[in-house]
């Protein structure tokens, strides 16, 4: 045991970059996966729709913690050694893909069929219909729930501490074991999470207003 110092708080802030990195990987990977899933869910081919639907159901219907365990312990049982970051990133990308895919599928489905028809009647190809007519409108609908989910991702990264990934929460408990100042340590940890999430929602609100002004 030793006393809490300013240096400990600094250590926390440095550890937060791992939280940010994991969140960034999860969101970027999840965004790509989500786009693919949303596309598959609207595919003309029933088997693809079914497969994507099954994927979404599985990942939305099981706890992220279990998905993390399966990726970390399950893979090593199969003889595939993965680092804590690797396992956490993989599990969280799979998880975010399911949620973001559903958010985006819903946003696209919310655009009236008349918009597709207006575009198709002018001779636009299917990709052109999507890129120039549907996507810009769906984007506005998708923005608030997407940012909402980004905030979830940031907080979800705390679960990775359980498989031994030294991000913000893990560093918090380590420092608490040394200094035993739970109130100060976990208070500071919470504050850092709040700062990250609050910045996200503030930026999103600005963007929303901007998009709204553009009409």
């Amino acid at each position: 045991m030793r006393d809490l110092t300013a240096y400990d708080i600094q250590t926390l802030i440095v550890a937060a970059r791992w939280t940010l990195l994991l969140a960034l990987i999860s969101f970027t990977g999840g965004a790509i996966g989500g786009l693919v899933l949303a596309g598959l869910r609207m595919s003309r081919f029933a088997p693809l729709r079914l497969l994507a639907g099954l994927y979404v159901a599985v990942f939305q219907g099981t706890p992220l913690l279990l998905q993390l365990f399966l990726c970390f312990f399950g893979l090593s049982l199969l003889g595939i050694e993965v680092s804590a970051l690797g396992a956490a990133a993989f599990a969280m990308i799979c998880n975010s893909s399911a949620f973001l895919g559903e958010i985006w599928r819903g946003s696209i489905a919310a655009i009236p069929k008349a918009q597709w028809e207006g575009a198709v009647s002018l001779g636009l190809s299917r990709p052109q219909q999507f890129v120039f007519v549907i996507a810009p409108q769906a984007l506005r609908i998708a923005l608030p729930p997407t940012v909402n989910y980004m905030v979830q991702i940031v907080k979800n990264t705390a679960l990775a501490s359980i498989i031994g990934f030294y991000e913000l929460s893990k560093m918090g408990s380590v420092l608490n074991n040394i200094t035993f100042s739970p109130l100060a340590i976990f208070g500071a940890v919470a504050l850092i999470y709040f700062f990250i999430c609050f910045s996200l929602t503030t930026a999103s609100r600005r963007l929303e207003v901007k998009l709204h002004e553009r009409g």
Partner: peptide, 25 residues
């Protein structure tokens, strides 16, 4: 074809509604 509900693109102004297909198609 012209529809009962106009089906204009709400995120574009009048000019771009008219020019979009000219440019793309």
């Amino acid at each position: 074809i012209v529809f009962q509900g106009y089906n204009l693109f709400p995120h574009y102004d009048v000019l771009n509604n008219v020019t979009l297909a000219l440019r793309l198609v």
